[in-house]
């Protein structure tokens, strides 16, 4: 870890008041917070900004950091100041980025002041703390979401490497969170194990689009099927069903298959009219016959609107 100039990170002069530091932090936090930001590397930037603020918002930590910064910028001034390094060992440096900064500059030996213990912060809390939760994005197919089922996934984190069996509930929708209690990282001491949280996301399907619990299928039809009506076979997540296309249907018409979506959702079938290509003189003649027959101008309604 390199020395970080927290003032530069916040774009503030080292003489900034506590009030200015607070105001700038709030502004940058709104800009870079991963939950609200659209910036490309929001997470990393927010981490830097909050690390800087954690230190600078506290007068003691800030004083300590200022001294350290002075040392980094003018190391010669401190040549005979061995004794004063002990001051970097105060409690204020624990549990903050300052701790890591000090270590990066003076090394992990704790050679100054003879008191290394100040650095040995117990990461992740006390002795009986609960284990870390594990978060995982579970990509599933729409068929799996529709029918439910079981799935084995391999989880590999620093604390856990195992295969777990997940039950996918029938009718689950995008973004739903599944929790596996006590299967996360083991706790410390008597602390309970953490949990596993799986967030459901849908894999792209060759035919269907999901909108919450509704499913849409775009169905190509011929102009005469749409005009005259026809009963056609369509795919649903639960298998094929017959759908009656009403006579006089236009392109984009939406028909509903009730209860054929996820859970209580429906399936919608959107008609897409496809003209047959002309592959022979006879094909061409058929189109020309249509042209002769209809004195139809689909742009009439546009003319009336301008």
């Amino acid at each position: 870890m390199d020395f970080k100039d927290y003032y530069k990170l916040l774009d503030l002069p080292p003489s900034a008041t506590q009030e200015e530091i607070k105001r700038t932090y709030k502004k940058l936090a709104r800009k870079y917070h991963p939950d609200v930001s659209e910036e490309a590397d929001a997470t990393a930037k927010f981490q830097e900004v909050s690390e800087a603020y954690e230190v600078l918002k506290n007068k003691d930590k800030r004083a300590e950091y200022d001294e350290l910064r002075e040392y980094v910028n003018n190391p010669n001034q401190f040549q005979n100041a061995g004794a004063s390094h002990g001051r970097f060992n105060s409690d204020a440096s624990a549990e903050s980025g300052l701790d890591d900064l000090l270590r990066s500059i003076f090394g992990d030996q704790g050679g100054f002041g003879g008191a290394a213990s100040g650095f040995n912060t117990q990461r992740g809390g006390g002795f009986d703390s609960r284990g870390q939760d594990i978060r995982y994005d579970l990509g599933i197919t729409l068929e799996e979401a529709y029918a439910g089922g079981k799935r084995s996934i391999r989880l590999s984190t620093p604390g856990v490497d195992k295969t777990i069996n997940v039950t996918i509930p029938k009718g689950v929708t995008q973004g739903k969170e599944l929790r596996l209690k006590g299967q996360g990282e083991p706790g410390n001491g008597k602390g309970a194990a953490g949990d596993i949280f799986l967030t459901v996301s849908f894999l792209k399907h060759p035919l269907f689009e999901a909108d919450e619990d509704d499913i849409t299928l775009v169905l190509p039809v011929t102009p005469w099927e749409a005009a005259l009506g026809e009963s056609v076979e369509v795919q649903t997540l639960g298998g094929k069903v017959n759908l009656k296309i009403p006579a006089g249907s236009q392109n984009g018409k939406r028909l509903r298959l009730k209860g054929r979506g996820l859970g209580n959702g429906d399936q919608f079938v959107m008609l897409k009219l496809v003209n047959p290509p002309i592959e022979s003189d006879a094909d061409k003649a058929a189109y020309e016959a249509l042209k002769e027959k209809f004195s139809f101008n689909p742009r009439d309604s546009m003319a009336r609107r301008v």
């Binding site: 932090y25 917070h33 939950d35 969170e177």
Partner: peptide
Amino acid sequence: RSDALSRCLLAERMRHDLQ
């Protein structure tokens, strides 16, 4: 309900991180 959990954690991040 279990979906309150992620909402609660998001709320806490907003409160703490954005003050």
